[in-house]
């Protein structure tokens, strides 16, 4: 904790030392921020030229077409409050994770509800689950990446989807 030390200094030399120490914490913060900043996906999913939002598109190489998930992502990203979306669909389910702009996070619950009902109206034959949780976003991102690059069987996809769905409703 270098910040509290500056009023106890005795001499100029000590003071110099503390200035050097003081720069340490912001530097650490900066480094950790920049490290988390450049975790971009490099598997050709990125589909937006606009830096304001983060859209990915999974090709239809996998066993189950991800067209519905792609469509859902495009629909929600039209909303101004949404800056990122990841989605995966199975034969009967649609799992969506969204990232909300910071200032709009005050209305997080309401937005989540609105988007869920919108998607439910649009995709009546799927069971829609929407989450704003960062963990779900990360998990779906990973699953999308696997669907894009590797062959994922239908059972495997169902299993993963159920696992992520369980995470959403995990309270404790």
């Amino acid at each position: 904790m270098p910040a509290f030390a500056f009023h106890t200094y005795k001499s100029q030399v000590m003071h110099m030392k503390q200035i050097r120490k003081k720069a340490f914490l912001p530097a650490l913060l900066l480094i950790s921020l920049s490290v988390t900043g450049c975790a971009n996906n490099e598997d050709g999913r990125s589909a937006s030229d606009n830096p304001d939002y983060d859209l990915t598109q999974v090709s239809n190489k996998s066993e189950i077409s991800q067209e519905i998930a792609n469509q859902a992502k495009r629909t929600i990203l039209k909303k101004q409050e949404v800056i990122g979306a990841r989605a995966v669909n199975t034969s009967d389910q649609l799992l969506v994770a969204i990232e909300i702009r910071q200032m709009d996070r005050f209305r997080l619950k309401k937005l989540e509800k609105n988007i869920t009902s919108d998607l439910e109206k649009k995709f009546k034959d799927k069971k829609v689950t929407v989450s704003t949780d960062k963990k779900i976003y990360l998990e779906l991102d990973e699953l999308e990446s696997r669907l894009q690059t590797k062959d994922v069987s239908e059972q495997k996809l169902d299993k993963e989807t159920n696992r992520i769905k369980k995470l959403i409703s995990d309270e404790a």
């Binding site: 913060l29 949780d133 963990k135 990360l138 995470l167």
Partner: peptide
């Protein structure tokens, strides 16, 4: 604020590397 930033860093770490959601981190 610094203490809370540190706490936020810890929870982000747990979300990224362990099986915790924002709900239970």
């Amino acid at each position: 604020g610094l203490i809370c930033t540190f706490g936020q860093l810890i929870s982000t770490f747990y979300i990224h590397f362990f099986h915790f959601t924002e709900q239970n981190v």
